[in-house]
Amino acid sequence: MFGFFLRWLFAFALLAVTFNPTRWNYTRWAMENYQSQLSVTVLAGLILFIGYIIYLRATLRSIGGLGMFLVAAVVGALIWVLIDWGILALGNRDQKVWLGLLALSVVLGIGLSWSFARRAMSGQFDVDETDE
């Protein structure tokens, strides 16, 4: 369980560092500083891009596009229920952005953790296919 939490936390951090409603994010920083710090902007962008490749590739391999859609649908339905019950109110844009980041990070966190969960439930390992 702690492993899932760490994988989700890193997914959330990756998304939040890239964009969030505060002024402390890569997107805003890059737009303001790319002319004076182009090399650092490119380096930071490439590091973020590598993080996305790792998460998206692992997620697509473990749960696939349909699995990503289903996890996103369940998270969306859960948010809908929380809004319906009055537990969650979407009053401003910033709150909606944070909620979207949370939802996307859950999809990526589950995708990266699915092989571990499947092995724990079934005892079977996931292995990559090779063309040898």
Rank of each mutant, 00 (worst) to 15 (best):
V42G: 04
T41A: 11
V74H: 02
F19K: 00
L48V: 14
Y34C: 04
D126V: 12
R23D: 13
I54M: 11
L6V: 08
G86A: 03
A89N: 09
F49H: 12
L99T: 09
T27I: 00
V40P: 02
W8L: 11
G3W: 09
G123H: 05
V42E: 02
R61N: 14
G109T: 03
G111H: 04
A58H: 08
F125G: 09
Q124H: 14
G100Q: 03
T41R: 01
T27Q: 10
Q95S: 11
S39A: 15
I53T: 11
F10Y: 00
R118K: 12
K96Q: 13
L88D: 01
Y52D: 07
W85D: 13
L9M: 14
D128N: 11
S115G: 11
V40S: 10
W29E: 06
L99F: 13
P21N: 09
A117Y: 15
T130V: 15
L101F: 04
A73S: 14
Y55K: 03
G67L: 07
L112F: 14
L60G: 06
L104P: 02
M31N: 13
T18C: 05
Q35R: 07
L56W: 10
M1R: 04
L90M: 14
A72V: 01
W80M: 11
L104V: 07
V107P: 13
R61L: 15
S62D: 08
I79E: 03
G123Q: 06
W98L: 04
R57C: 09
L66S: 07
M68P: 02
G86F: 09
F19W: 10
A58N: 13
A13P: 02
I54P: 01
V97H: 04
K96G: 08
V17R: 00
V40E: 10
E32K: 15
